[in-house]
């Protein structure tokens, strides 16, 4: 039996629904020795800002139960250096490249970035990172406010025909309200979830393990939260969802499809097993065959329960 793993996200056609999450895969070149990158459904780049960013001081990561905290602070070389040094390698892969973008503190930067990227064929879609919890001095996130989310998505929607993915934060009271705001503003797709805010303390020193004190929690520790948010959003909106948060193997990837995701992203697991993404692609195919499901699309939101 032949199974179909191809999915469509906005205008984007993916040969399979497995991508790698922003910030966990660098600019892909770091992983070329481990897997055939061309097998991936798509690559989401580490977030790029208009100008280079130094990021946060070290220590930037620490392990926590079944997960890790990070506070990188959006370190990146800026748009110009990305286009010159990173994009040519990505372009050659011939798979969809989703560029994650953020603005440091000014929404005009977002618009400038979107305008500049509009012209580039090599960039298949834009992921709006309005949910990074690690920008120091920032009191709240765009994606913690429905109006602010609506407004930024709308203003970028106006100027780009590229597929627009809005990445939301789980650090909110009601994720489906935010999901609806992004959908209403014209987002083609949602990425759920970014990291959960957290902290860890060295008790001997009575000091935080991260220099920035707080950071973003990722890994299997957050999977139940992520799944619930995907499921809640799925029930409220019509646009596709890219599910992520603690996926480490095929069963954990399947959970997200069943909860309502149309595609999934592998994040922190790339650090532990750099081959995990391609292993999951093959695992999904085997599952569909075994369950006699012809199309991965039929798995999305297929949760069976008594309500």
């Amino acid at each position: 039996m032949r199974v179909n793993l191809a999915v469509k996200i906005g205008k984007l056609k993916l040969k399979n629904p497995v991508m790698v999450a922003s910030g966990t895969f660098g600019y892909a070149e770091e992983f070329k020795g481990f897997i055939n990158l061309k097998k991936l459904g798509a690559i989401v780049t580490k977030t790029i800002t208009l100008n280079p960013r130094r990021g946060n001081p070290p220590a930037r990561t620490c392990e926590t139960p079944s997960g890790m905290l990070n506070s990188i602070g959006l370190e990146n070389p800026g748009l110009e250096a990305f286009l010159k040094d990173k994009l040519p390698f990505l372009e050659k892969l011939g798979i969809p490249i989703i560029m994650s973008i953020a603005s440091e503190d000014d929404s005009r930067e977002f618009i400038e970035l979107a305008k500049r990227l509009n012209k580039l064929k090599a960039v298949s879609a834009l992921e709006l990172n309005i949910s990074c919890p690690n920008v120091m001095g920032q009191e709240s996130l765009i994606s913690q406010d429905c109006q602010a989310t609506y407004s930024i998505v709308k203003s970028i929607r106006r100027i780009t025909a590229k597929t627009l993915i809005t990445k939301l934060s789980p650090n909110v009271t009601c994720i489906s309200d935010l999901a609806k705001a992004a959908e209403d503003a014209g987002s083609d797709c949602l990425a759920l979830i970014n990291t959960l805010s957290g902290m860890s303390i060295n008790t001997e020193r009575q000091s935080p393990r991260l220099a920035a004190v707080v950071g973003g929690l990722s890994g299997p520790a957050i999977r139940p939260v992520a799944l619930k948010m995907v499921w809640e959003a799925y029930n409220k909106i019509k646009i596709p969802i890219i599910g992520m948060g603690g996926i480490i193997d095929t069963p954990s990837a399947l959970e997200f499809f069943i909860a309502g995701a149309s595609a999934i992203s592998i994040g922190t697991a790339n650090f532990i097993n750099p081959r995990v993404s391609v292993e999951i692609i093959s695992g999904l195919g085997k599952y569909l065959k075994r369950k006699k499901i012809k199309d991965i699309h039929s798995l999305t939101g297929s949760l069976i329960y008594e309500s």
Binding site: T24, G26, F31, K46, P58, R60, T61, C62, N70
Partner: peptide
């Protein structure tokens, strides 16, 4: 020596000045 996320240059977790 530093705590590392990925060890292969992707996560930018182990930087020094």
């Amino acid at each position: 020596e530093e705590h590392m996320g990925c060890g292969i240059g992707a996560c930018l977790g182990c930087v020094v000045k």
